[in-house]
């Protein structure tokens, strides 16, 4: 049975509102943990104000932050899923939903032409909103995820080399956090996403996905990567810098790393900071048209991180 396009558009509008207004529970719990141990008076005050802000946003159904970021879409297709009108109709529905929700919520119309600065006042334009795709075996649903990442600051890329090793990784991680953490330009405490390996573009994409599409508390299945996630989180919180760059210990709510095989001579790395307004929301639209909302995008899976040539693992392992 094909999923009706109207269902997808309505769901997308609802997701846009949820992302803009409701702070995800995993991020909130992570921030509260940092708040409990924050001893810097100014940094603690900032986090307290943020916690009150999330409540105000939900009570008033208004955007949690006035800079509502750049709304974008992640679509995960089950291999057996069919959509009324196909992927072209889906893309049109996502663009319509973005424009409509921008007006209804309202969101800030952030998207402009890079040179003329022309603004359509609806967050839609050339290559905007971005729509990225992934596929999933043995499934007939479609997962829609929206992320409204904010920020002109907090992201960087560097080509490291194998000889730079973990010490080089630690250095670049600190460089990025310290540079953008001062005055709180990165709007920390943040979920820090790291892309390791891949090509330059893959490295950036993996790192962004690690920041925006994994939850606080999630662990990479590769034990070496999982260990580095813990180590870098501790390192970030030991700088002595808290919210807004004031003295404190609240910099990293969690550190998520995603990796990809890279050129044998290099070790590219990217760092991304998903800010105090870590806006994401997901819905699974089933083949029969019913919709389930959640805040964990479940973007990464054993399938998406597969290392073998063929994918013929039993069904049990294909599940997330």
């Amino acid at each position: 049975m094909a999923i009706p396009i109207a269902t997808l558009q309505t769901t997308a509008e609802e997701l846009t509102a949820k992302a803009a207004i409701e702070i995800p529970a995993d991020y909130l719990a992570g921030l509260e943990k940092l708040a409990d141990i924050e001893s810097g008076e100014l940094s603690a005050f900032v986090i307290q104000a943020m916690l009150e802000n999330y409540k105000a946003a939900e009570e008033d159904r208004r955007a949690m932050c006035g800079d509502t970021g750049c709304p974008r879409w992640y679509v995960k297709y089950g291999n057996e899923a069919r959509i009324d009108g196909g992927p072209i109709a889906l893309e049109a529905a996502l663009r319509r939903a973005t424009a409509q929700a921008t007006h209804n919520i309202p969101l800030r119309p952030n998207r402009v032409h890079p040179l003329t600065r022309a603004d359509h006042d609806n967050n839609v334009g050339m290559n905007a909103p971005e729509i990225e795709y992934a596929f999933h075996p043995d499934a007939d649903w479609v997962d829609l995820t929206t992320v409204h990442k904010g920020g002109l600051f907090g992201t960087d890329y560097r080509m490291l080399f194998p000889g730079d090793g973990i010490e080089g990784i630690r250095r670049f991680f600190l460089d990025t956090l310290v540079a953008f953490g001062k005055r709180g330009l990165a709007c920390q405490p943040a979920i820090v996403g790291i892309g390791l390996g891949g090509n330059k573009d893959t490295c950036m994409v993996l790192g962004k996905h690690a920041a925006c599409l994994r939850t606080v508390g999630s662990v990479h299945p590769d034990p070496d990567i999982a260990q580095l996630e813990v180590e870098l989180k501790e390192l970030g919180n030991s700088i002595g810098m808290g919210a807004m760059g004031f003295m404190g210990s609240s910099m990293v709510v969690d550190c998520n790393i995603e990796a990809g095989y890279c050129h044998t001579g290099g070790m590219p790395m990217s760092v991304h900071m998903f800010c105090l307004s870590s806006r994401r929301a997901t819905a699974r639209v089933h083949a029969d048209g019913h919709v389930e909302y959640r805040t964990d995008p479940e973007w990464f899976s054993a399938y998406s991180r597969r290392t073998t040539v063929e994918w013929d693992t039993p069904m049990a392992q294909a599940a997330e």
Partner: peptide
């Protein structure tokens, strides 16, 4: 911010122990 930055700067060097500048 400048007052706070001066306080934070004192501790940053310690966090950098066990790191190395990029080869390139």
């Amino acid at each position: 911010f400048e007052r706070e930055n001066a306080k934070v700067a004192a501790g940053i060097e310690a966090a950098y122990e066990g790191t190395r500048p990029a080869t390139m």
